[in-house]
Amino acid sequence: MTKQDTRPRPKAGPAEPDRPQRRKAAAAYPYAFYLPAGIVYVVIFLIPTVMAFYFSLTRWTLFDSTFVGLENFADFFAEQNLSIGFRNTLVYAVLTSGLKVVLGMLLGVLLTSRLRLRGFLRSVVFFPVLVSTVAVGITFSVLLKPDTGLVDRALALVGVSGHDWLGDATTALLSVALVDVWKGVGLATVIYIAGILSIPPDYYQAVEVDGGTAWHRFRHVTLPLSRPATYSVIILSFIGGLRSFDLIWTMTRGGPGFTSDVIASIIYKQYQAGFYGLSTAGNVMLFLVVSAIVIPLSWFLGRREIA
């Protein structure tokens, strides 16, 4: 630290900051400020993430581990109750983020128009975001009960016969995904509201001058200019959807059987069963799936934004 480089240096361009300035930066903005956050982050988050790659290749009891190569991953693809989680995770993420984009944009447009109860409606739509997922899950599993639940009763009024939404393998995952949309669409909506409100009003006036209709306003101004909001909603809900666990766990526990299991719930099940290596392999797969989807997606969306 005390040893100074005294050799004369060739004069660099103006981009190179001179020495006193750099020393001033070190005094004002010491790298030591990274330490508290950095230590917690590295120890609690980064080390386990890196170690997961090793432990996923072992049979593991927390105290000792035997290297088994790719056996855990082979199990994941071979056993149907594990591989189904893979497919369900993708279905769940695509479905929830797709619906959040469409409904969030519709609600965003609606709630930025001159409605009288705009403020109230915004609150109503946003509040579920703040309610705990467990509470939402329990409430909707009661509402979706076969025959006695409110949903089936309401459907009976219009002549549709009852259905066991969460107990039927074909509708369980779908129902949970819809509840996820119900809970999360508020966040998408406020993102769209922020995006739409940041569109300069001149554009709308231009459409007005040209005699455009409400459809033209939406199609040629709101839709293209709220693109950043769309990207945010897609990426946020993809990350959330791929990792989602609590709602599925409180509503179906991956059931009936294992038909609504996602990777995150399999991680928990294998952990409970004591298959730590297998559980960690699930974690690594989740990591790979999330990276393989979110990183290209944000790169692709970011690039189109510039163009």
Partner: peptide, 21 residues
């Protein structure tokens, strides 16, 4: 540091290794 911040937003935490640690 920027890279680590973004990773922290995206990467799902590795559960059992965290317990181990």
């Amino acid at each position: 540091a920027n890279f680590l911040v973004l990773s922290g937003l995206i990467i799902p935490p590795a559960i059992v290794p965290t317990i181990w640690l």
